[in-house]
Simulated scan of single mutants.
Amino acid sequence: MWLRLLTTTTLIEGDLRARLSQYSDISLPRFDLLAQLAREPDGLRMSDLSARLMVTRGNVTRLADQLEREGLVRRLSGPDRRSVILRLTQLGKERFDEVASAHEDWVAQLLDALSGPEQEQLSRLLGKIKTQINTRRSTSGG
């Protein structure tokens, strides 16, 4: 089952990468970062982005540097002066919105082998596994 999950994830990710590269100059990691910021109009701390994207802070910093140079995000001082908040600019929101609609359609196409109820069931089952893993992590301190 684990190999099936991993293979399916890899196939979906590869398809989305290919479609994004044909559709725009926004790579999948850049899209994922912009998507996180689009959900949080007040922005996110770099450390929170790192946790949400499950990548290192260095990766987030490199992506942020690129996106800032392109005018898609801007850095703001955090409340404690040591943290940095990353926020979408208006241009960043517009660029993300252009790609997000297409991305949503692609994901729907990739998952259309499952009926609506099957997709809901799969989502519930994966959520159950995620909850169990997070519970074990929090109780074991890791």
Rank of each mutant, 00 (worst) to 15 (best):
A100Y: 11
R62C: 01
Q119K: 15
G116P: 06
V73L: 11
L3S: 13
Q109N: 06
R57M: 11
S140E: 11
W106G: 01
D25V: 09
R87I: 05
S47V: 09
V84E: 05
L20I: 03
S140G: 00
S140C: 08
E68L: 00
T61A: 13
R30Y: 05
T139R: 15
V55R: 12
L76H: 12
S27I: 04
R136P: 00
T56W: 03
L6M: 08
G116H: 08
L63K: 04
Q66C: 05
A113V: 11
L67Y: 12
M1W: 06
L111M: 13
V99C: 00
V84I: 15
L110N: 09
S21Y: 09
K93S: 11
T89L: 00
R39E: 08
G127C: 02
I129P: 01
R19M: 10
L86M: 11
V84D: 00
R30T: 04
T8L: 03
D15M: 11
P79R: 12
S50K: 03
L16F: 03
P29T: 09
E94K: 10
M1V: 05
L11W: 09
I133E: 02
G92R: 02
G43F: 04
S27R: 11
L114Q: 07
S101V: 08
Y23D: 14
Q66V: 14
L6Y: 07
L72M: 13
D25E: 15
D15G: 08
L44Q: 12
N59H: 10
N59M: 12
R30L: 03
I85F: 02
Q90I: 05
E120I: 07
T56I: 02
D80I: 05
L44G: 06
L20M: 06
S83Q: 10
D80K: 07
L91F: 06
T89N: 07
I12A: 07
E118A: 09
E40L: 05
T139N: 12
M54Q: 10
G14R: 14
